[in-house]
Design a protein around this nucleic acid. Structure first.
Length: 429
RNA sequence: GGAGGGGUGGCAGAGCGGCCGAAUGCGAAGCUCUUGAAAAGCUUUGGGUGAGAGCCCCGGGGGUUCGAAUCCCUCCCCCUCCGCCA
């Protein structure tokens, strides 16, 4: 959530920043009004409570000095004040709740550097990278579901038999390729100074709420009712919640974390889209990078996370482009996001394989993640950043399409061979 | 799953229903002393909100009371033992 004090002290800039992302100015004005009402009630409630406390002390004093009658009078007065305070308390709570709801509805202020735009079509491509001698021959124009089936490394039918459509099953070298990708990426991030985490994949409701995945997106997540646990849609959920209610030392920042987990998405809103192959699946593996940083570090860390994801794509030899999400397409928690899209020649599409976001203090405020400045002073909210590096099904798809040889076999990228027992290619049957 | 024990400030650890937002110790910061350091002594040292006075926070929520860290209910979490188990 954004800082309510900004709404009080700098209303106009909040208004214009949110207007860039298409927020109705009326929403912001309504929030300001709710805030004023809530503050007023809090003040009146506190005055009533202060009176109760003062009277209570007088009751005690009167009792000590044996003035029974006076004590009884004061007791009655205090009780009346207490009733008044109780009523004001209820009102103040309701007002605070209304304010909180309005506040939670507002998205983050976009970074001043985020490009303006109304939707996905307005996202500028900031750069494109391609390997040397990059070209696509006819035998690379085969979609991965055909390549995978022909080589016996992707068995979508069996996945569907076990769990339903959009639950892929990889086998043989296909499964090993996934494992290689995960080890390759984790090792790379370890060398970059990241701490490897293996978090739980099922989390409590409170954990989903603190990252903003609930209640808004409950339709998108798998829920185990008996135990009231949620299957994580991304490792961002447990990793961001790691810092929940914590006060970190500034010396620990930036704190860099990486985790490989399965991710689960119901894709309820995307029924019928991308139903073929690996473009959209209910369960997939992903390596995530995440950082907590001070506000002054955040810009560099954002660039660092982006560079890591790009580095992996380049090492894998995939042509990719970097897209700067415009204000109309930015996720609601994010101040700035770069998407990475890899080119898959067989399906002839740019596949979103990573999303690298800077959330400023929006998530940290909601999850209460702070740091203690080493120069002293009160704890301040950290900035959170995260990125996928990378999401494997689409990478897997792009890889088998790009690396398909004329004879139907698929070349294993150099960087993965060590993780594949030296295997240079997945042979055609 | 069964039986017990426990959740208090950065940590450890006290706390008859009424100067308790909280003793004490450790840790940390500042100062004095010292060539410097150690030691010693003195001082300071939780968070939220608010312009401030104030108000709130002793695992979460609710209740009793003029007044709750302290009493009651409830939920959560942790620990020990037993059982089961990859």
């Amino acid at each position: 959530m954004i800082d309510i004090r900004l709404v009080r002290t700098d209303f106009d800039s909040v208004l214009s920043a949110l207007r860039r992302r298409g927020v109705d100015p009326g929403e912001v004005r309504r929030l300001a009004a709710l805030d004023a009402a809530a503050s007023d009630l809090v003040r009146r409630r506190d005055e009533a409570r202060a009176a109760v406390k003062a009277l209570s002390r007088e009751v005690a004093a009167a009792q000590r000095s044996g003035e029974g009658e006076l004590s009884e009078q004061l007791r009655v007065q205090s009780r009346e004040k207490g009733v008044e305070a109780g009523l004001l308390e209820k009102e103040a709570e309701a007002a605070a709740e209304a304010r909180r709801e309005a506040l939670l509805r507002l998205p983050n202020l976009p970074s001043s550097e985020a490009p303006d735009g109304a939707g996905p079509d307005d996202n500028p491509v900031v750069r494109t990278w391609r390997p040397e001698n990059c070209s696509y021959a006819p035998w690379q124009r085969v979609p991965h579901w055909d390549v995978g089936r022909d080589l016996g490394i992707l068995d979508l039918e069996s996945g569907a038999k076990l769990s339903g459509s959009m639950f892929p099953l990889y086998r043989g070298a296909g499964a090993r390729l996934l494992r290689a990708l995960t080890n390759f990426a984790l090792d790379d991030h370890l060398r970059g100074g990241f701490e490897e985490i293996r978090p739980p994949t099922m989390v409590k409701t409170a954990t989903m709420v603190s990252t903003g995945h609930l209640p808004k997106f409950s339709e998108e997540a798998y829920h185990v009712e008996r135990d009231d646990l949620w299957a994580i849609p991304t490792a961002e959920v447990p990793l961001t919640s790691l810092g929940r209610e914590e006060v970190l030392d500034e010396g620990q920042l930036p704190m860099r974390l990486t985790a490989a987990t399965s991710c689960f998405r119901r894709e309820a809103g995307a029924a019928g889209r991308d139903t073929r192959g690996l473009l959209r699946v209910h369960e997939f593996d992903k390596v995530e990078v995440l950082a907590y940083a001070t506000p002054s570090q955040a810009g560099d860390v954002h660039a660092e996370l982006l560079a890591r994801a790009e580095g992996l794509l380049a090492a894998l030899g995939l042509e990719y482009r970097v897209v700067d999400l415009c204000t109309g397409d930015l996720g609601s928690s994010s101040a700035r996001t770069f998407d990475l899209e890899a080119y898959a020649p067989g399906t002839d599409r740019w596949l979103e394989v990573s999303s690298v976001s800077w959330f400023s203090d929006y998530q940290a405020r909601r999850a209460n993640i702070r740091y203690r400045p080493s120069r002293g002073g009160p704890p301040a909210f950290v900035h959170t950043l995260n990125g996928s590096a990378l999401a494997w099904p689409r990478i897997w798809a792009a890889l088998v399409e790009v690396n398909r040889n004329a004879d139907g076999s698929v070349k294993v990228p150099d960087c993965l061979r060590g993780y594949m027992g030296g295997q240079e290619a997945i042979p055609a049957p």
